[in-house]
Amino acid sequence: MKFLKMAAIAATSLTLLGSAAHAADDKPVVGLVMKSLANEFFQNMLEGAKAHEAKRGDYELRAVGMQNETDIETQINAVENFITQGVDAIVVAPADSRAMVPPLKRAKEAGIVVVNFDVALDTKAKEENDVELAFVGPDNREGAKMAGDALAKKIGKGGKVVIVEGNPGADNAQQRKLGFDDAVEAGELELLDSRTAHWETEEANTVFSNMLTAHPDIEGVMAANDSMAIGVVKALESAGRTDIQVVGFDNVPAVGPMIKDGRLLATVDQFGQEMAANAIDMALEVVRGGPELEGWVKTPIKLVTAE
C-alpha cells in the first residue's frame, strides 16, 4: 500500500512544478493552494509559509499559486493533483467561494484534512454540497469598519466620504464594502459616491481624481486596499488638497511612510504573512489527531495608525 502511495506521489508530482517526490520519511505533507502570487499579499504569505516550514521542520510544504486572481481552473486542478498525491492536509485560499466547494469536498472524502483560510467558502454552497469546512481567517468586514470608524472619528458626524472598492464580485471586496458601510452608518457620515478601482493604484488615482472633481467637498476616503489608497494619496497631492483624510487596508510596506507623515490616516493589518502559517498549524493539529476544526476561527486584525 505504501509503495502504491509512493508511486502515485512520484507519478503525479511530475505534474506539479517544483514538488519533489521525497515523501519517504513520515513527515506529513501539506498542500498549500494560494491565490495570485503576482499579488504582493500572497507572495508575502507564501514566504511566511516557507519560513514556517523551515522553522517547524516536521512537515513538508507543497505550494501552488495561480496566474491571476480569477484563475479558478488552476486552483481546482491543484486540489485534484493534491488528492491524487495523497497529501495529508490541504490548506486553501479559494479564488471563488462557490466553485471551490466540490473539489474540496472530494478531498475531504479522500481523508485529507482541509482548512479554508483567507476568504470563506460560501455557506450556501457548502450546505448544497452537504460538506462541513471550517474557516480560518480575518473578519474583513470588521477590519474595514475599524478603518472606517477611525476616519469617522477624525472628520466627525456628517462628514462627506467616498469609497474606493475592490474587484466587484470578490468576497473580500464585498466584505470590506459592507464594513465601510457599517462605519458610515455608525459614524453618521454622508456617503457621496462608491466606485471600484479593481484593487489597482493607477486606476484608483484616475477614478478618485474624477470623484474629487465631481465632489470637491469630500472630507474622507475609504480605500479597500493600500494599493488603491496610494493612488488616492497621490491624487490628493496633485490636487494640492491636504484637508482630506484617507484610510486603507492591508498595511503593505509602501504605506509605512504615508502613515508616519499623516498622508494616510490608518490602515488595517490582517497579518497576512502569518495567515497561511497559522492555518497550516491548525491543519497539522488535526492531522496529528486533534479535534476537527469547526465554524469560523477568527484570526487577529489590527488598526495601524501613526501613534
Binding site: 499579488n39 493604484t201 493607477e202 488615482n205 496610494i230 509602501a254
Partner: peptide, 15 residues
C-alpha cells in the same frame, strides 16, 4: 510617466 505620477513601481501595473 507611470512612476513619476504614482511614485511607485508595481509589477502588476498596466494590466
Amino acid at each position: 510617466v507611470y512612476m513619476a505620477r504614482l511614485n511607485i513601481a508595481s509589477p502588476i501595473a498596466g494590466i
